[in-house]
Lab assay of single mutants.
Amino acid sequence: TTFEIRVGDLRITLHNADEEEIRWAEEALRRGIHADEILRTLEERRR
């Protein structure tokens, strides 16, 4: 599944994310964390 998060002009697309990952990514985007860093962190958490 694919889920797109939008916060203002910012956007990130997550693939195969669970609800916790989606909530975490949305909050991180709101705090101004760059999408590349969010994706990198999620990848590390999945390992």
Rank of each mutant, 00 (worst) to 15 (best):
E26Q: 07
E20Q: 11
H15N: 06
H34C: 10
R40T: 09
L14S: 01
T13P: 04
E26S: 09
A25Y: 02
L10K: 14
D36A: 08
A17W: 02
E43F: 05
H15Q: 05
T41W: 10
E37A: 10
T1Q: 14
R45F: 07
E43Y: 06
I12G: 01
L14Y: 01
R47Q: 12
R6L: 15
E26Y: 11
E19K: 10
E27I: 07
E43M: 12
D9G: 04
R46A: 07
L29D: 01
L29E: 01
H34A: 12
G32M: 05
D18F: 13
L29S: 02
T41K: 11
D36E: 13
R40C: 13
R23D: 05
T1V: 10
A35Q: 09
R11E: 10
R46P: 04
R6W: 15
E4T: 02
F3Y: 09
W24Q: 03
A35L: 05
G32Y: 03
L39H: 13
A17G: 03
T13N: 03
I5F: 01
R11C: 14
L42V: 13
E37R: 06
E26G: 12
E4H: 02
E19W: 13
R31Y: 08
I33V: 12
E21M: 12
I12K: 01
I22N: 01
E26R: 07
H15A: 04
E20F: 12
L10R: 10
E44G: 08
H34P: 14
L39R: 04
E44H: 10
G8C: 02
E37T: 11
F3E: 15
T13E: 05
I33H: 07
T2A: 15
R40N: 12
A28F: 06
D9T: 05
R30K: 10
T2M: 14
E20T: 10
T41F: 11
L29F: 04
T1C: 15
E26H: 05
R6A: 15
R31E: 09
R45D: 05
L29G: 03
D18P: 03
D18S: 14
G32H: 06
E27Q: 08
H34N: 12
R47M: 10
H34W: 08
E19H: 12
R31T: 13
L14A: 01
D18Y: 09
R6T: 15
D9M: 03
E44Q: 09
A17S: 05
R30T: 10
E43L: 06
F3H: 15
A17R: 03
T13W: 01
T1R: 08
R11H: 14
H15V: 11
E20L: 12
R45H: 09
T1Y: 08
E4R: 00
E43T: 08
A35F: 04
I5G: 02
R47F: 09
R45N: 11
R11I: 15
W24C: 04
